[in-house]
Simulated scan of single mutants.
Amino acid sequence: MIESVMFWNEPNNKSHWDPAIDPDWSQFATMINLAGQAVADVNPDVTRVLGGISPIDPNYILRLKGMGVLDNVDVVAVHGFPLDWNLWQIGEWPAKVAEIEAVAPDHPVWVSEVGVGSFGAEEVQVFGVQKTAELLVGRVPRAYWYSLFDLPREWEATTRHKEAEGSSYYRHFYMGLIREDGTPKPSLEAYAPYADRMGIMQWFHYEDPRLPNAVAWLKRLGVRHLRTGLSWADSFRPNALDWFDRQMEALQDFDVMATFCFTPEHLGVEPHHTSPPRDPQQFADFCAAMVERYAPATPVKLHSAGRG
């Protein structure tokens, strides 16, 4: 069910990893090294992806490289949103990829999130889909469009300062190809010709009611590659494994990259999902357990592995 795993999400973004606690990323590096080794021990055929970085910063990759992280991952990943949050133009995508290739020449570079929102105008998003595909399809081995669905307005976007960020915050709610009410935007039609070559990144919240509809749309579009998440924090919720099982079973027809992230509050140095864990081995153990369950070296059917 899982062909690749991603260790964390945007670790150089303070909305996802707290630099006040780990200013030199040494705790992060230790955690990823342990996780990379643990996953390789369970199934060496699963591709290990370093959490997609945002901003795209070659010096950050060099820092992690110096701490041995690239020895324990197979792929380096980047995220970019040049028409919404980044201070560079969409046409710079090939150069941004090349910056990372230059400092990690032995690792493929995947674009694990790229998106353009419809916050300003839906026509801008149509342009963004088409231009992104022109620049990245064939340039990188994998690119994932963020996202299939708009984020519902009653939910919160995962950012540090929420509404205080102004329009930067509200843009998070307009990144989908399909509106919150389930109707397709013009960008969906623009994306469709590239669906078999440019994957989708879609987060599913705990017991997300959108899962069946997402699967139906992904199959209708002919999407092959899907990136999603299995939250370490959610693994401590009631019946978490049942939810994980249902999610992964629903996605079994796709080539799935599972992102492992979010520190459980009770296990963090500070009680927050961006905090380094007090014991990094616990994150590695979670990653290994998820790979053993959903991508074992000897495949087994999900129902025979048991639930709960």
Rank of each mutant, 00 (worst) to 15 (best):
S4D: 04
N9K: 02
S15I: 02
H16F: 15
W17L: 04
A20F: 09
M31S: 15
M31F: 00
M31I: 00
I32M: 11
I32W: 09
A35V: 03
A38Y: 05
V39H: 11
A40I: 00
V42D: 04
V42Y: 07
N43F: 03
P44M: 03
T47V: 14
R48M: 04
R48E: 03
L50R: 03
L50F: 15
I53V: 14
I56V: 15
I56E: 02
L64T: 07
K65T: 13
L70N: 07
A77W: 05
L87S: 14
K96G: 01
E99W: 04
A102N: 11
V103F: 08
P105I: 03
V116I: 14
S118R: 06
G120M: 01
G120N: 13
E122C: 00
Q125L: 06
V126C: 10
Q130K: 15
T132E: 04
L135R: 12
L136Y: 10
R139I: 00
V140E: 11
A143W: 11
Y146S: 10
L148K: 12
P152A: 06
P152M: 06
E156W: 14
E156Y: 10
A157P: 11
A164Y: 09
Y169T: 03
Y170F: 15
R171S: 00
H172Y: 14
R179W: 05
G182S: 11
T183Q: 14
K185Q: 11
E189A: 15
Y191P: 07
A195W: 12
A195E: 11
R197G: 00
M201C: 12
Q202M: 03
Y206H: 12
Y206S: 03
R210C: 01
A214E: 07
L218E: 05
L218T: 09
R220N: 14
L221A: 12
L221K: 13
V223I: 06
R227N: 09
T228D: 10
W232F: 13
A233F: 04
D234G: 01
F236P: 00
P238D: 14
Q247R: 14
Q247T: 13
F254G: 09
M257H: 05
A258Y: 07
F262C: 06
H266W: 03
L267D: 01
V269F: 02
H272W: 05
P280S: 05
Q281P: 00
F283T: 00
F283H: 08
A289Q: 13
M290W: 10
V291R: 06
E292T: 04
P296I: 01
T298D: 13
K301V: 04
